[in-house]
């Protein structure tokens, strides 16, 4: 079971969390003005990197906040967790 460091509550067991998919995909300001290609890109297309991945988690059974994490998908080790809205930490391969 993963041990995930909530930016608010500290290290907590995975049981308290839900995964929220790739991070840093902002909903377009005015979706109606987007081309179908751009909307498709936003809606469906996601990176699936081998290595560091910025992803959303929610401390569902804790403070209930969404936050972001950098996790290495090959080792399951977390490099960093940070609050929603904060930029992806520098360091580590993209």
């Amino acid at each position: 079971m993963l041990l995930i460091t909530c930016p608010y509550c500290g290290p907590r067991p995975e049981l308290e969390f839900s995964h929220g998919g790739e991070a840093h995909i902002a909903r377009p300001e005015k979706p109606s003005e987007l081309s179908i290609e751009d909307w498709t890109q936003y809606l469906y297309l996601r990176a699936n990197p081998k290595g560091l991945h910025a992803e959303r988690w929610r401390h569902l059974h804790g403070c209930a906040r969404f936050f972001n994490a950098l996790r290495d998908t090959t080792t399951d080790q977390f490099v960093a967790t940070y609050k929603a809205g904060e930029p992806r930490p520098t360091g580590g391969a993209a």
């Binding site: 509550c9 907590r12 049981l15 308290e16 059974h61 804790g62 403070c63 209930a64």
Partner: peptide, 10 residues
């Protein structure tokens, strides 16, 4: 104090 899980309940 915190929310957490107990078996299959929050």
């Amino acid at each position: 104090c915190t929310r957490t899980v107990f078996a299959k309940a929050e």
